[in-house]
Amino acid sequence: MQITAYVVHIHRADTAPALTTGALIATVSHLGTVVDSRPLTGPQVHDDATHAPGIGYTGVRLAVEDGDVEALRSAVAAALAQAGVPAPEAWGESARTGESVAVVPASLMQAPTKLLVMDVDSTLIQQEVIEMLAAHAGREAEVAAVTEAAMRGELDFAQSLHARVEALAGLDASVIDAVRERILLSPGARDLVRTLRSGGHRIGVVSGGFIQILRPLADELGLDFAVANDLEIADGKLTGRVAGEVVDRAAKERYLRQWAEELGLPLEATIAAGDGANDLDMVRASGLGVAYCAKQALASEADARIDLPRLDVLGVYAGL
């Protein structure tokens, strides 16, 4: 039996799915043979004391042989549309259903060692750090508007970053510590990291945010790689500039490829996850690109979507 892909269906545990398991099997059976199925059930998030319990998930994972990954992806997308699940381009705030189907190549699902590379702001963590810093300068709304436009792909990321960092000029460097103490991991993040590490897999984070925030968090979680922008500090004050290279969408893809090469892993064994246009290149380059509670610009391009605020669902897509 040669498995070519796995079809993973996830939906909120507290709602009936629009696409039933029977309809999903009928859809994929036209393009391959379903040789195994496994029910999926996730408990409510209990990540740590700072998080209220989250929404559980349920679903099914189907093993398909003699199929074609891209044809399967097209088929399940059509099935979701027929079932009335909105496509990303039709999303509004009320249009996210929490239901999605991902087609995962067997080369990733069965890889003995996987590399997960994640964005940080609004992916690994719940907040946008630059907006938290800008709040100390009384310019949070202004900076948030620029961040949103950049994540939708309407602005060049590097230019938008420089413009937003300028708003921080003159702030005492102690605001970094104050912001760091308020960081909240996304629900399920600790469980995801724990599961990956226990399975011998590797984890990297690459952020358009700031290394002064990221490094302590990466060390605490035991991540293998961490890269972000460097806030320039002089005489105990933020200068309003970043030091060195800007970590933009091209850099994110470059680090994905670099880390995979260092680990001796093919790109087929990598997963990339993020929420905005700045993550597009690494999501496209990876073995499985995941849009996590993402903007339309990324969600419409990714191989898989997670619309539940549950980062541990990513582990289900990865076969963990």
Score class of each variant (00 low, 15 high):
297 A>N: 04
88 P>T: 12
240 G>T: 10
6 Y>S: 09
80 L>N: 04
96 R>S: 06
25 I>S: 07
315 G>I: 03
302 A>F: 03
210 F>A: 11
272 A>V: 07
319 G>M: 06
14 D>E: 13
12 R>Q: 09
89 E>G: 13
175 V>S: 09
6 Y>P: 03
5 A>C: 12
143 V>F: 02
92 G>E: 08
277 A>P: 11
121 D>T: 07
196 L>V: 09
156 D>K: 01
317 Y>F: 14
33 T>H: 13
66 D>A: 15
295 K>A: 04
66 D>V: 10
222 G>D: 10
33 T>F: 02
216 P>T: 14
17 P>I: 08
293 C>R: 12
130 I>P: 04
98 G>Y: 00
300 S>V: 14
138 G>V: 11
114 K>H: 09
264 G>A: 01
123 T>Y: 05
75 A>P: 10
22 G>H: 08
142 E>P: 03
225 F>C: 08
197 R>K: 15
140 E>G: 03
310 R>I: 04
167 A>P: 01
194 R>W: 01
151 M>H: 02
126 Q>M: 12
19 L>C: 08
159 Q>G: 15
218 A>F: 01
214 L>V: 15
20 T>S: 14
38 R>H: 13
149 A>D: 10
38 R>F: 06
241 R>L: 10
134 A>C: 10
65 E>S: 14
110 Q>N: 14
81 A>N: 12
205 V>H: 02
312 D>C: 06
296 Q>N: 08
51 H>L: 15
291 A>T: 05
291 A>F: 03
268 E>P: 00
183 I>D: 01
60 V>K: 00
107 S>P: 02
10 I>P: 02
320 L>R: 03
2 Q>Y: 00
197 R>W: 01
51 H>R: 14
157 F>I: 09
232 E>P: 13
19 L>P: 03
117 V>A: 10
103 V>R: 08
221 L>N: 12
228 A>K: 04
199 G>Q: 13
124 L>C: 10
